[in-house]
Design a protein around this nucleic acid. Sequence first.
DNA 1: TAGATTGTTAATCGATTAACAATC
DNA 2: TAGATTGTTAATCGATTAACAATC
Lengths: 234, 234
Amino acid sequence: MSLSQTPSAHVSARGVIPDATVSRLPMYHRSLLSLTARGVLLVSSEELAEASGVSSAKLRKDLSFLGSYGTRGVGYDVEFLLYQIARALGLTQVWPVVIVGIGNLGNALAGYPGFASRGFSVVGLFDTDPQRVGESVTVAGKEIVVTDISKLPQVVLSTGASIGVIATPEAAAQEVCDVMVRNGITSILNFAPVLIEVPAGVDVRRVDLATELQILAFHEQRKSQSALTQANAG
Amino acid sequence: MSLSQTPSAHVSARGVIPDATVSRLPMYHRSLLSLTARGVLLVSSEELAEASGVSSAKLRKDLSFLGSYGTRGVGYDVEFLLYQIARALGLTQVWPVVIVGIGNLGNALAGYPGFASRGFSVVGLFDTDPQRVGESVTVAGKEIVVTDISKLPQVVLSTGASIGVIATPEAAAQEVCDVMVRNGITSILNFAPVLIEVPAGVDVRRVDLATELQILAFHEQRKSQSALTQANAG
DNA sequence: TAGATTGTTAATCGATTAACAATC
DNA sequence: TAGATTGTTAATCGATTAACAATC
């Protein structure tokens, strides 16, 4: 799971979009992309919900926060709904992104095809390790050279990047965060397993890969315990 | 954010632990680890909540689902609470984990120090690409050779692994999932940006790195819109 | 018109919060 | 005892769900 450090609902053309709804929009977006790829033109709430792993009631409720983009008795125009969701999510523009910490994880993120394909453009890769600085990484078909973090300010300035990704070890995360914030980054995706402090107005989302495994372990443990209980009862 | 495909609350010695609470236990666990490292012996709900980014009321409520492990007027014994949370999460045992798909992301996951340090042991790395099979990867100080996925059954059998990680491209995810499930894996962490189908009793958690960026983009867009609105109003 | 499916309502459920009695 | 802090209660808030009127 990822942990938002800055929750609360948000304003759209229609009014407020609940956080729970916002968190599901990317899934709907992806399902619609897949339908487009298969040449499907029209989809019902039942079908799209099934493809997205939610109930149709929840899907219709979620979509209703964006507007009335379906046709009663018919369904949703795939192309049109895709555009409306993309617009709501802010994916009708390209977002320049900088990544700091180009170890295993930073490399994986830089090369992640899902970034480029969904409107994000990696415009800078930074590290402090002299071993890594100067290396070049293939990002979305073009080579990007890993640069010392001291060059971050001018890259952010010249590209207008407002989103930064932290993929450093825990110890460096807060300092990297401070550099980012000082230079105009206002949204941070943090993969370091630590809570970082940011001024008001800066959004942070944290993804901790081990957290997800821990939650699975919790469920596993529960399953083996209930198996034991059943064995004892039976 | 990560998306659980199998929600609902769970049973502990005390009774039911709500999902919202379970999702925060890893954070508390990590905060307590950090306190231990700094030699702190005692912590109040106020301090631990601050370190974990939640309110003290929420923290106390969450802990109350595990049991009464604090002392009124005093606080919580760090070591003891750490153990109780670890026990609740199932971290008092080592969980063998297999990873399938050893590209950039799989490599990053295999080398992630947070896995070993929190009771997970990577016991197998699998791929289908003949280029990758045979390569060796350093995991927690020891070399593991990437093996063809046809060898997964015997590794799962010999290690008793019940947790699997999918780090393949989207197209391979369902097939890999089927192989895992057929061979006794009952918890899956899925990094492929697609919903996978599993039989009842198998837990899946999905982490989509792009989803997190999309949610940040949503917030960014909102911020620039409200800046515009303010400018027009002022 | 008859059939289908949306968008909305209202009821239910679960999570959060503040306040405070219990108790060290 | 006085001060501090937990564990629990009850009120509030937000999310989910089922049902159905609206309408294509």
